[in-house]
C-alpha cells in the first residue's frame, strides 16, 4: 500500500516527508509503549501511536520505520517534526482514535499480506 493511501484512508494531515508519499509499505503496528515496539516489531514500516514525545521518532528511526501516524488528533511539536524530517520519516496526524485508524488500515488490507 502506498503511504498516500494511508493518508487518504485516515483523512490525515501530512506534517513532513510529503515527497515520500508514493513509497510502498506492507505492514503496520500500533502502540503507546516504545518498549514494546522495540521488542516485538519486526518489519512493520508504519507506527501508529498516541504517545507524543521525541522518543517516538527515535524509536521509529532505530527500527527503520518509514511512517509515523499520530492518532487522536495529537499535534507533534516543531522539534518532533524536525526530527522526523531529518530521519526521512513521513509524519502525519489524524483525528481518528487508534482503534478506528488501525481498523481502517487493516480492513483495506494493510498487514494482511494482500497489498
Amino acid at each position: 500500500m502506498k503511504i498516500s493511501e494511508i493518508q487518504r484512508l485516515l483523512d490525515a494531515e501530512v506534517l513532513c516527508g510529503g515527497e515520500s508519499l508514493e513509497n510502498e509499505v506492507s505492514s503496520a503496528c500500533c502502540s503507546d509503549m516504545m518498549s514494546d515496539v522495540l521488542a516485538y516489531v519486526k518489519d512493520q514500516g508504519v507506527l501508529l501511536t498516541g504517545l507524543l514525545n521525541t522518543q517516538v521518532i527515535r524509536t521509529a528511526a532505530m527500527m527503520d520505520m518509514v511512517c509515523i501516524v499520530m492518532v487522536r488528533g495529537k499535534m507533534p511539536t516543531a522539534e518532533m517534526v524536525a526530527l522526523a524530517k531529518e530521519s526521512g520519516i513521513v509524519m502525519m496526524h489524524t483525528k481518528l482514535r487508534a482503534y478506528e485508524a488501525c481498523g481502517r488500515l487493516y480492513h483495506a488490507g494493510l498487514g494482511r499480506g494482500e497489498v
Binding site: M33, M34, A39
Partner: peptide
C-alpha cells in the same frame, strides 16, 4: 516512565 512509553522490562532481554 511508563507515561513516556518505556518501562515494560523488555530492554535488557532485547
Amino acid at each position: 516512565i511508563r507515561a513516556l512509553g518505556f518501562g515494560a522490562g523488555m530492554g535488557l532481554p532485547n
